[in-house]
Structure formats: structure tokens, C-alpha cells
Amino acid sequence: MIRAEGLGLRYGDGDEGEAPEVLQGLTFSVPGGGWRWLLGPSGAGKSSLLRLLHVAARPTRGRLHLMGVDIGAARRHELPAMRRRIGMVFQDFRLLSHLSVFDNVALPLRLAGRAEAPLRADVTEMLRWVGLSKVAAMRPSLLSGGEQQRAAIARAVIVRPLLLLADEPTGNLDDAQAERLMVLLREMNRLGTTVIVATHNTALVERHPGPALELARGRLARDG
């Protein structure tokens, strides 16, 4: 599913001189259907690694194979289809403010060109699963933080992604909400989705032990 060899990332266009590498020499692999915590202090490079895995940035060094595709060498027009197989839950949700919750969750299916009738059934079912049926017609800004979080997750998993990435998903949640979210993510993983969850919430990790990748200053400090 994921194979990284000497993976490195440097921000900027090069002409900004020597921007430091925020990720350096990462070598690891994650099998299909696997689970990984992504750990490390703030600024360690967790979000940056998730960007690479979400194909929102290309490696500036080394190789990254995702679902059998060499991301560094892939043609640009091949990437949108890959992104549609990857679900991403952003730290700041990134729901589209001018669309209803329903339309936000339906968006990935519409981008994939799904027909409207089956799509409506799927989105309705998904909203019921995450407990947002009652607010489906509302704008995201009217929702609580926890509800927005669940809308973002619904949008990420509606396409049944092969790979699900979550960046600090419990950052805005209280403990009860965080537990419900974990149940959701575990369920997705049990159904076959590869899940990578970035967090610095050590209590959460202790309650839900699992294999982890730990970053320290852009380098891999632990794999297992």
C-alpha cells in the first residue's frame, strides 16, 4: 500500500535558497489494511508526511510508492484519480462553507462522476452512520466542532477509500467524542481500509494501542 525509500520533503520553489528539509530519509512501509499511529511533537513533520501521502505535495527526495504508483514519477493527470481513492480528514476540517453538510459529503462522489440517485442514498446512509441526519441541510458553520469533525470524516470515507489519513482528528473533541471517533476509524480499518492517524494525544494512543511511526525533527524515530 505504502512504500517509502529515503523519502524527503523540502518546502519552497528552490529559488528561495536553502529551505531546510522538513522530512529526511524516511524509509518504511505500510501493508494494505494496516493501522499506524503517526506520532511526534508539534513541528516534527506529521502533517507534512500526510501531505505526501495525500499527494498534495510531491517528494523532493527519495521515492514514494502509493497503491503501486511511483508518486515522484507519475504524470500529473494521473494524480486526481489517486486522490479520489485516498480519504483525508484535515485538522481544520476544510468543509466548503457555501455548501450544505449533505453537499459537502456528496462532493467526492460527484467529483467521481457518480449518478445522482444512488449517490443520494449513500450520502443519506453515511450521514445517519455519523449521526448528522438532522443537520444535513445546514451550512457547516452552524455546526458544533464535533459535528463538523464528523462531517469531515463522512466526506473522507464516503468513497470507501483504500487509504484513510487523519490529522489530529481529536484536537477539537472532548473525550467522549474522541472515543466515538476512534470506534469509527477502527471500524473503517476492520473493513479493510489502511488508516494513518497523526496525533500527539498520548492518552488516546495508550487506550488504543497499535503500531506507530514516530517522527522527530523530520526523521523516523520509531517504526513499530
Binding site: H77, M82, R83, R84, R94, L96, L107, L111
Partner: peptide, 16 residues
């Protein structure tokens, strides 16, 4: 900008 980048991240093609 943010909306466009979000759509791009969700797998929207340039044409879309």
C-alpha cells in the same frame, strides 16, 4: 484559494 485547493485535494480534475 482554499476552496479550490480543497476541491483539488478531494480529487477534482483541472478540467472540473
Amino acid at each position: 484559494r482554499e476552496v479550490v485547493e480543497t476541491l483539488h485535494g478531494l480529487g477534482a480534475t483541472d478540467f472540473y
